[in-house]
Design a protein around this nucleic acid. Structure first.
Ligand SMILES: [Mn+2]
Ligand SMILES: [Mn+2]
Ligand SMILES: [Zn+2]
Ligand SMILES: [Zn+2]
Lengths: 137, 137
DNA sequence: ATAATTATGCAATACTGTTGCAAATAAAGA
DNA sequence: TCTTTATTTGCAACAGTATTGCATAATTAT
């Protein structure tokens, strides 16, 4: 089984308390986390700034990916595929439950292709579906 | 031709200087606008708070819709279809150009259906594609 | 024209995110 | 293991973003 420590080393990061703690939060979470969630659960011991910097590092390294929202908050979730430095393979759909507010990576639901107008070139695509999740059904 | 005034009346809003001005900005814009854009162009005369409240009202009424981003900013764009109070028909793809940074409503590109896992119910879907736009090609 | 309703501006306040720098910690090398 | 080097952290200061209550001003309805 892959430990927090393994993951940090695998991505070439030095192993520190805050990184271990924040990574643990992701491993135990059943949905995506907002900065505020992490701050609430981890920042008792760590400075706010450290949380910002850790999340930024994790995104850069490809340990977590970001999920866009329309409420001025970014959500973060563990990358499950083989994401690497500056190259995410985050082609799955995200689901936000309007009842329990959890955001879930639907790792098996691939973002469908779309035909863009002529002269538009695609680099990345994100898809967020809102609705009612299986638990709230 | 439908004027600013018509639009405001159509949605049951009282006609005020700030609403007219902000609506004008949207009508003249060739892409989506961030709060900051509006503040920069309109807030010479209006208070910041008024911009917040106006955008909120426009979203509620269905005059503009929001576009999610991963940079802690919300973008707003005019609704072109028949959106109404609390019921947006915003089923088109949004395109963010990584070169010129403009965000464009691809009104003719419909968000494709996705098959959700069992016991998940869909309410809304948003899709944001990044890449290079026709002007920057 | 007047009254009732609604929107605005202002001030205060809270929340969110960034930067520089010194101290602390971790990794690399002997 | 001890020492050196590189990296990370916390703090403080600051800038930017968003929300609220309330008095005043503007708009709409009568
Ligand atoms: Mn995901
Ligand atoms: Mn749009
Ligand atoms: Zn739910
Ligand atoms: Zn462009």
């Amino acid at each position: 089984m892959k430990t927090k420590l393994d993951i940090l080393k695998q991505y070439g990061l030095s192993v520190t308390d805050s990184r271990k703690k924040i990574l643990e939060l992701f491993l135990n979470a059943d949905g995506a986390l907002a900065h505020a969630d992490i701050e609430k659960n981890a920042a008792k011991n760590f400075d706010r700034v450290t949380v910002y910097r850790t999340l930024q590092t994790f995104v850069e390294k490809g340990i977590v990916h970001q999920i866009p929202t329309t409420d001025n908050s970014i959500l973060y979730a563990l990358c499950k595929q083989n994401c690497q430095q500056g190259h995410h393979h985050d082609d799955h759909v995200h689901f936000i439950c309007s009842n329990c507010d959890k955001t879930i990576c639907l790792d098996d639901v691939t973002i469908p292709q779309v035909k863009l107008p002529i002269n538009f070139t695609k680099q990345q695509a994100a898809m967020v579906v809102t609705g009612v999740c299986e638990d709230c059904k």
